[in-house]
Structures are given as structure tokens and as C-alpha cells.
Amino acid sequence: MPSHNKLKSRAAANVVSNIQIATNIYEMVLHHDDVSRATQPGQFINLYCNGKATLLPRPISICETQSDYGTMKIVYAVVGAGTEEFSQRQPGDTVDILGPLGHGYDMHEGVKEHIIVGGGLGIPPLLELTKRLIGKKKVVLGFRDETFLVDAFKHYADELYVATNDGSVGEQGTVIDILERHHIRGDMLYSCGPKAMLEEVQPWCIQHEIEGQISMEERMGCGFGACVGCVTKVKNQETEQWEYKKICSDGPIFYAKEVVFDV
């Protein structure tokens, strides 16, 4: 009979801080020992609303953990009723969470040069990754206009490139423009960002024969594999046929070469 000694469940996390860091973007630090300690870069947590109308969890990636203190940081945008509710939480309040969920980035030993490519709200989970990777780290961050978290990356990146669509901060252009302009090369690429960006990152990896790992996103139901709502097409390496894989439990990190983007 399967052992059920360690059932995972929703738990209240204490809000340590919750501050606005850019237009509509907030940074919340939560205290929960077990979740903080167990988190791998690229994983996410479910946050639950108090409202009885907004039942579904909000999956939010973990930006940074400080396991010594049992805390974790998330960076989120206010996009609807749920995230609006979270933005109102004050230090001392609690929020129900479940996690860490999903599979994070593979951090293979022996990889010497890492390329880390983030776009917009895909940037936060790359911070903990950049912190933990060993080797040379080249970080490319793309924003629409306003930037955030750039200073935090400065501590861990060996090379840091910042780009905005309008050139208002850093260089003008997309992350692909930056990769090309500066001839950035490496042994492994890690990316998280809007689907449109990932769709360009994938062929870039293939063209330059660099293994890539990308973080996928979709409207989720449960966040732990039960509802089969958030799927993405993944190519079976043996049969060459695609099949739907669950982003929440099989991902959210997939190898770039496996993901099939719908055109």
C-alpha cells in the first residue's frame, strides 16, 4: 500500500513584506519553512484567494528563496481580482499556499557557460536559478519599457544585458537582438518569458546548437496535475509524435527542442 506519511497540503504562509516595485508589479516575501527549503529554481507555488467567488489558485513562480530564514520571494503583476487581492495583503497577514509545484530547471554538473534569458514577468524565477548555477553566467533581460529586479541580478551575473522594446532603459531591442548583437554563446540556455519570446528562443537554440530549457505557461486549474487543464504540445523523442504534457506537473520547465508551438 502506498505510504501516505508525507501528504502535501495547503498551508498558511505569513506575509513578511509586500511592496510595489514597478507599475502594477509587486514583490511579496512569504514565510514558510518547508516550502522555502524544498524549492528548486523554476518551480512555482499556488496562492489561494480568500474570496469565495475566486476559487482557483493563482500559480506564481518563486523568484528567490532564503531557506535559512524559511522565506521565499515572489514577484507578480496585478492582472485580475485574485492578484488585486494579494496586492492588498500586509505584513503579518497570511496567504494560503501550496507548493513547491512542478519541475524546476535541470542544473547539470559540468556545464561551464550558462545563458539566462528572461522576458518581463518571466524574469523572476531566473533569479534563484542564476544564484545557484555554477560557472559563467550571461544574463539577458528583456522588458517592454519599465525594468525591475535588474539590480538583484547584478550580484550573480557575470555578464548582464538589459533591453527594452523602446530603448528607454538599456539597449533597444528584443532578447534575441541582444543575443545576436553581442554574440552570446554558451553550453546551456535557460529561459522564461512570454510565449512569443520563447517561440523565438527555441529556433535560436537550435540554430546555435545550444541545449535550451524553457518555462511554459497556460491557464491552470489545480496546479498539481489533477485536472489536465494546462497542457502544452511536447514531441516524443522516440516516436516524433507530439503529445499533450501537463505544464503544472510535467513542467513547467521543458527542453526547448521538445516543445511544439502552434503556429
Binding site: 467567488a53 476559487l55 482557483l56 497556460e218 491552470m220 486549474g221 485536472c227 489536465v228 487543464g229 497542457v231
Partner: peptide, 21 residues
Amino acid sequence: GNATPRIAETYGGMLNSVGLQ
């Protein structure tokens, strides 16, 4: 099963269109 999005939140509930994957 069906293409995504397959999940939508509604007042006090949710819609799904998984399509029996």
C-alpha cells in the same frame, strides 16, 4: 483532448474543456 485554454474561472466555479484527454 482539446486545444488550450481549457480552463476558465467563473463565479464560484470553473469551466473546463479538457475533452477527455
